[in-house]
Each structure stands twice: as C-alpha cells, then as structure tokens.
Write a protein that binds this DNA or RNA. Sequence first.
RNA 1: GGCGCUGUAGCCAAGCGGUCUAAGGCGAAGGUCUGCAAAACCUUUAUUCGUCGGUUCGAAUCCGACCGGCGCCUCCA
Length: 472
Amino acid sequence: MLSIYNTLTKMKEEFVPIHSPEVSMYVCGPTVYDFFHIGNARSFIMADIVRRYLEYKNYKVKYVMNLTDVDDKIIKKSIQEKKQAAEISENYILAFLEDINKLKIKPATLYPKATAHMKEIIQFIKELEDKGYAYNIDGNVFFDVLKFKEYGKLSGKKTDELESGARIEINEEKRNPLDFSLWKKAKAGEPFWESFWSKGRPGWHIECSAMSCKHLGTTFDIHAGGNDLIFPHHENEIAQSEAANGKKFVNYWIHFGFLNINDEKMSKSLGNFFTARDILKKHSAEAIRLSFAQTHYAGPLNYSEDLLLSSEKGLEKINNLAYKIQNELSTAKKTEVSLNFNFDKYYRAFESSMDDDFNTPQATAVIFDFTRDINKTISENENLNYEFFKSAKLFLEKTAVNVLGILDFEKHSKYAGDSIENELIELLIRLRIEAKEEKNFLLSDKIRDRLKEIGIILQDSKERTTFKRITI
RNA sequence: GGCGCUGUAGCCAAGCGGUCUAAGGCGAAGGUCUGCAAAACCUUUAUUCGUCGGUUCGAAUCCGACCGGCGCCUCCA
C-alpha cells in the first residue's frame, strides 16, 4: 500500500487513484527564459522518481508537465536581447528537453505550452467571470479572492491575516490586495492575444488550471512542484479551478524541498547559481540522482561538491557490481552451482520503503545492502550459475535502473565502447598475464599503469583479469 | 507578526511509541585476499538522538519550555 504525504491535509494518506490503474499527474514545469538550475533539477528528478515508482507498481501514468512560454521574464529577456519572445522560449524549450534527457528524466506524456492553449485559457477566465469570481478593470482581469471561501486551505493562510501582512503589494486597481491577475493587458511592444477584455496575455496561474483541466480532467490525482509554489501559485490554482469547475481540483499535493548551496539560498547575486548543465559537465546523471535520492524529497537538501563526490564514490560500488554481473552473464554456464538467494526479501524491502511516502534514502540503502550481499555471495561461492546473475541483474534493473535511475548497465557493459579498442585491451591483458607468469612485474605493472593513464582500469582476480573504463 | 520545516556519529542521512545497545552512503583505523595494486568482503568508528522538564510500564520518536538553523508570506522549483 502506497502512502503519500498530502500537503492539503498535512497527513500521510493511502494513495487511491480516481481511475485505477490510470494515474493522472501534473508537475509544474519550467518558465523557459533560461537554462534550468540544479534546484529545478531536484524537483524534476524527484517527480520523475515518483512517476517511475508508480509505473513500477503497474499504474499507467499520464504525466503532464507544462511549459510556461508567455511570461514577464521572457518578455524582459526578449527586450534585452532584441529578439522575439517566441524565439527565446523556443530555444530554451529545446535546451530544457536536452537537459531533462541528460538527467535521465523520462519524458512527460505531454508538454503543453501556454501559447498553444490560449483558447482554453481565455475560456477558463470567461467562465470565472460569468460565475462572478473575476472582474475586469480596463482590460485587466483579476480573480476575486474573497469570493472563494476556501481560499488558503492549501497553504494554511487566512485571508484576513494575509491582508494585514505588510508585504502585499498595493495595487489601486484591485478590489483587494490579494486578488491576482487572470489576464494582463499588453503594453506597447509586448506580445498579445485577442480576448474578450483586451489584447493581452494570461496571468501566471491560469495556464496551469486551464491546461491540467484540459489534459487531465477537472479532478485529477497528483499535482507536484517545489515548496515555494504552495503559495501563491498552487493556492491560486485551486481557487481558480474549483471556482470554475465546482469540483475538487486535486487529490494529492506533493511538494519538494528546496535545494541550498553551502547552506545559502541559491541566487544569481550570491554567485552560487548553478544550472543543471554546469553540473552535468562534472558529474553523471546517476551521481546527481543518487545524491538527491539519499535525502527525502520533502526536506531541504544542501548541495555541495562534497555531497556529489561522496555519492559518486558510493555509486562506484553499485557500478562495479553491475560490471561484474555483466561479465559473469557472458561467461556463466547454466549448469553451474545454483543456490537459494532470497531475492524476494530485497524486493519487499525496496517496496516497503518506497511505499512509505517515497522514502528514497531507505530504498537506496536497500540497493546498497543488496550490493554487499551479492558481492559476498559471489566471493563465497565459486561457479555460480547463469540464473543467479540474471536474477541479480533483474533486481537492479527494476529498482536502481527503472525507478531510481542511478544505474545504467549499458555504461558498464564489457562491450561498451569500440570493439577494436576492446580487442586491443584484451590483447594487452593477455600479454600482461604472460609477463606476470614470467614474474616480469616491472612490465606487467607498466602495462597496468599506462592503461590507467588513458582511463582503463585493470583488476586481477584469481581466474582472470577484467577491465573497466573510467566514466563520469 | 502569521504559516510551515528542521536540529541523529568527523560529514551526509533514514528511523517518528517497544524488535533502536539507531539503517545506508562518504571518511577514518585494522584485517582477509594479492607479487604489488585495485576490487570485494570482515571488524571497529552514536549505550546515544540540540538542552531541560513532563506523559508513559516503555521516548530519538508524544507534550511543554528554552536554545539554534531554514523556508514561505513579493518573481522563484
């Protein structure tokens, strides 16, 4: 039984989809005005793990991630760079898809763009206006927060307290400072769309309501995003959607904790701002994902180079086992020793960890336990049969590869890389074995050292010498 | 001021009423194997969970106070 901590109720709840085995899931995507940063990457990766685990449990997930391609920041950038807003957003959409792919994040079922849903967005606002939840002042349309009685139920804020808060911007046009934009009239030079009210563009929150409603229905299962989106973004989405549809918007709200850099909030002004691209130059997707998975998704995560380094070291253990398994599968025979290794125990441990609100730190601990126990079994039993290694590989594939995305068998195949190169390495290994047999350790060590310099690591065991490549 | 999160070994981090004399990763120390490496495995590294009280047969886990850290309330994942 899967339970999920629901921000709306502040409790862990049993997950029951509306139309099992289908699950509808919406994740707030990027505003495409720049490369996304490592903090965004944490949200996208953790959402990806949630999705992959649902798929592990045989749910059929419809996963929708919006691309915000109309927005003040995009317009600002387009003015700075003297380009069309659409050109900026198109470029960063491509970059986004590239980076997502490099981070081993499974593509969403759909990536709806705000600009491709103007009709739906305008219709949605119209609906709110018709029902008396929105008002138009000179071409700017606002949502009337006081009309929606349950406003604040997600963030736990009370409208009267919010009003008295000193930090709310006072806008003379609005009836109430809490009211937020549904439609903004375009200023000269800004991109615009025709509407009932003015030539303009949608406010920030309305696209998510309109697009999730269109693609997932008026009520759907899971809505996820960063912690900071709880207020006002998600609060406003609830208000808009429930006011327009008269139905509960979302059953389960999942929010991801913030990522800090060396205990400080990441910001461009502090100079501690890293894009996912930057990090990917130094570290593999697997290492990044493991370092995120080792902290629970809801808590804060302090990013540092040391953190990545320690995850990288840990990964090496899993990678070495993957490599060993790949080697054994190419040589082990069906007739060799079979033994009763209790694989089921590890599946159960993995599942009970993930079932408990996606406890990835515990799930990764299961992977490490498994790695140790398989290694131990291998060293204690000679000539294990093919089935054993196949089952070991299957476990890692289902968990570390498919759910957590912290392992890639292809990278650790003996046959990764160029085949002629592989044959040359094998040749050097044979020569080195001959040297060793003649006790010419000077030569054998030289071969090993020189290969290491070019990124090939040799490892001797009793029966044979294996090699692996250093990869990031 | 309001809302919420958080304080567990040298570092990161699970556990959230009994099986906790507290998982896992990194680091450190010793050992097995080895010509030497490397890998792998074994052992050691928190009798204690910010502090002080309380509830309970029993608390890292619940409650209160206090002392720290952080986020949101304004664009932000």
